[in-house]
Simulated scan of single mutants.
Amino acid sequence: MIKKVGSIFFLGTLFFAHAQEKSTDIDSIEIQGKLISIPYKIANQNITVITREDIANSPAKSIDEILQQVPGMDIRRRGANGVQSDIAFRGSSSEQVLLLLNGIRMSDSQTGHNSMNLPIDLDDVERIEVIKGAGARRFGQNAYAGVINVITKTHIGKRVKISAEGGDYETYGFGLNAQLGNEKFSNSLQANSNSSQGYMYNTDYEIRNIFYQSKLNIKDGDIRLQAGFSEKKFGANGFYSSPKATEQYEETQASVVSLAHQQTFGNLKIHSNVYWRRGQDMYLYNREKPEIYRNMHIGNNVGGEVNSSYEWGLGTTGVGVETEKRIFGK
């Protein structure tokens, strides 16, 4: 089934944070909207920025854990290490929160329950920006209660980091982070693998992430490419249905590819992107007896947007258009 979500014209100021790789000073962050940008220190919206320093000083091991520290957020976690989480604000549902990865929509076509299936690890995050309240609604669908923009790290030069960790319950983690590039063209590749036998019966998990991004600087602008894949397999003892449903099992996959462009032509600024996100969710009521009940969903989001702003004597005028199609299957 194919569903066209809509083509929407925007007039006014729509904000999401734009990555500034070389600065961690919160006042130097520029809030770049779909149409108009404004410095963070004078923004009039309810914005919380979790910096790289905040992440490093936190005991959190996953993105959902670090978001729990934001006042007003309602994180309903199931399992350990970010296996499964519903993310919302107090008084809202997960369907009413828009999740962005470097400014690209990551909303799942089936349900907000799967929006947190991101192909990155917390160690790859540069910062997280959260817009709460009515100001977020101008982002359109899924932004009724708030917007969360996760921005990944980029570096210039050559750098390779390999990490490993272990713990109780046969918990293991391995990671690779490689950077290669210069002021003109930079590349980043991250790959992570985590597994555990679980803290109690049937809470074992395996998580695999791989994420690539690149940035090409052009005259008065840049072109950015990102691609990622996430896979989670986990025992879901008591996650859904009744606490007595101890044999539940789930596998999820999420893929994303996007290409974004921004450039300035005198007083005119252009921002555009195209993206594709695929989500897959397979659920078994009893992992040892899949014939009892099996549920399988596959969904694709394909979309793009073009936004512009022009500075002239009376101020700044912004115009843009966005379209998205959702394709469902089983």
Rank of each mutant, 00 (worst) to 15 (best):
Q280C: 09
H297C: 07
L98G: 04
I31S: 02
E288A: 14
K161S: 15
T317W: 08
R76D: 03
K289F: 13
P39W: 01
R326H: 10
S85H: 03
Y293D: 12
S28W: 00
Y293G: 09
V97L: 06
R137L: 10
F185I: 09
S230I: 02
V321N: 15
Q96A: 09
V306Y: 01
I298E: 09
Y212E: 08
Q197D: 12
S85Q: 02
S28D: 06
M296V: 14
R52A: 08
L259T: 08
Q280N: 08
Q20A: 15
F234G: 06
R127Q: 06
N57L: 14
D25I: 03
F89V: 13
A164L: 07
L11E: 15
F16C: 12
Q141F: 09
K153M: 14
D74N: 09
G228D: 12
K153R: 14
D54I: 01
I156V: 15
F328A: 15
M296L: 13
G6M: 07
G318Y: 03
N273G: 15
N217W: 13
G167R: 07
Y201I: 03
A191M: 11
K61E: 08
Y169V: 02
S272T: 10
V256R: 12
I36R: 15
N202T: 00
S242M: 09
A236Q: 05
Q45I: 00
R127M: 00
Q96F: 04
F265H: 11
G329V: 05
N209P: 06
G6E: 02
I29K: 08
I42R: 01
Q226H: 14
M1K: 12
V125F: 10
E65C: 01
G313K: 09
I2M: 11
V302D: 08
W312A: 08
A56M: 12
S93L: 07
K244H: 12
A254D: 10
V125I: 12
R278S: 15
Q110G: 06
A143M: 04
P71A: 01
K330G: 09
F239M: 08
F234T: 01
D281V: 01
L14F: 09
P39A: 11
A136C: 04
S94W: 02
N301K: 11
K232L: 07
V150M: 04
I162L: 15
N301T: 06
S272L: 10
I50Q: 00
I327C: 12
Q141T: 10
Y199K: 09
A43S: 08
N177F: 04
K161E: 14
V274G: 14
S196P: 02
R287I: 05
K158P: 06
S196Q: 00
Y310Q: 05
S85M: 00
I2V: 14
E250G: 13
S23D: 03
L98R: 08
V319A: 14
T264Y: 12
G320M: 07
N57R: 10
E231S: 13
N149G: 04
K61D: 06
E206T: 11
E30M: 12
I29G: 00
Q197I: 02
K215P: 05
I104V: 11
L101W: 03
L11C: 15
F139A: 11
G166I: 07
